[in-house]
């Protein structure tokens, strides 16, 4: 799979972007900004996954409805009682509205995490933390290699045992659990044998001989476009945070709904957030257009 244009930026830029967007999506309670946050995520996820994106997005919409609807069950505050149940427990509009706000936060966070999973490969993750925590990132790298290896080996062992006339995964639950335990046992034996070789191999290639800083093969370079993008993003985040801190985006849901009109700083924050969440999609779109133009000119 070819990565999208935004993914080709430096991992630090990517991380700042996702961390910023997700935290803002959690903090913002102003309905318009919340909607913008979710919409930006949904658009980018559609850019990334195409038609497959709808499965997650539709699921999240369903979750939105459920999470909205259940909040009034836990929270009875609010002036406008829609109806009462269980002998007079009120189901209020305000609690419903607040539920919708939280559900929107949940949906945005999930969507942005789904984008994050596509963009932030393990390579980038380990690259970012490799300098700070070389030993831990190495363990993580090794684990990421071993998991699929063990999965494959487990299948091999299972086939081998079945072909040798041992029962595998048939019969009662008890038998299945026992077969699973034998398989796991065999897998562990093999894994530990391999561990000795891997450790030898590491030491043989000089692991632990260098007392100083561990140099790295740098796969990513922080270029001018990364710097530019980072400045734009940080500016957007700063504007939104200022608005949040000064109360320009303040709203209340319970006990009474109060969504004041946005002051100028609030409008600025709205624009800043919109710019921020649309950055990846815009970069992708620009590249798509550039390709189309270059195709038509040839």
């Amino acid at each position: 799979m070819r990565p999208d244009a935004f993914s080709t930026h430096h991992p630090a830029v990517t991380l700042v972007f996702f961390a910023g967007v997700i935290v803002l999506c959690v903090l913002v309670q102003q309905p318009v900004l919340q909607a913008v946050g979710f919409a930006g995520g949904a658009v980018y996820y559609l850019c990334l996954r195409g038609r497959d994106a709808w499965r997650l997005l539709l699921g999240l919409m369903a979750a939105f409805v459920v999470l909205t609807a259940i909040n009034p069950l836990f929270d009875t505050l609010g002036d406008t009682v829609l109806f009462a149940y269980l002998g007079g427990r009120p189901y209020t509009l305000e609690a419903l509205a607040y539920g919708a706000s939280t559900a929107c936060m949940f949906a945005s966070v999930m969507t942005w995490f789904a984008c994050y999973a596509r963009v932030m490969s393990t390579d980038k993750f380990t690259y970012l933390f490799g300098n700070r925590a070389p030993a831990l990132t190495l363990v993580l790298t090794m684990t990421l290699r071993l998991v699929p290896t063990y999965g494959r080996k487990a299948r091999q062992i299972s086939t081998a045992r079945r072909c040798a006339g041992l029962s595998m995964g048939a019969g009662s639950l008890r038998h299945r659990a026992r077969d699973g335990a034998s398989l796991l046992s065999a897998l562990t034996t093999w894994a530990l044998e391999g561990a000795v070789t891997t450790a030898d191999s590491m030491r043989s290639r000089g692991y632990g001989t260098n007392a100083g800083r561990r140099p790295r093969y740098a796969r990513y370079r922080f270029g001018a476009r990364d710097g530019l993008l980072l400045v734009v993003m940080l500016a957007c985040i700063a504007v939104t945070c200022t608005a949040l801190a000064t109360g320009a985006l303040a709203v209340t849901y319970v006990p009474a709904i109060d969504v004041p009109a946005l002051p100028p700083l609030g409008v600025a924050a709205l624009i800043a957030l919109a710019v921020l969440v649309l950055v990846p999609s815009a970069i992708d779109a620009r590249e798509a257009i550039a390709w189309r133009c270059s195709l038509s000119s040839t």
């Binding site: 993580l140 684990t143 071993l146 063990y150 299945r176 699973g180 398989l183 897998l187 530990l192 632990g208």
Partner: peptide
């Protein structure tokens, strides 16, 4: 991180963590 662990320790952590994740494959029938 600050105690600069040795190769064998790193490998054992990785092996056990990977086994924990991959062990599910051994119980695929359940």
């Amino acid at each position: 991180e600050s105690r600069r662990p040795q190769a064998r320790e790193l490998v054992m952590l990785a092996v056990m963590a990977a086994l924990a994740v991959a062990a599910r494959a051994a119980f695929i029938w359940l």
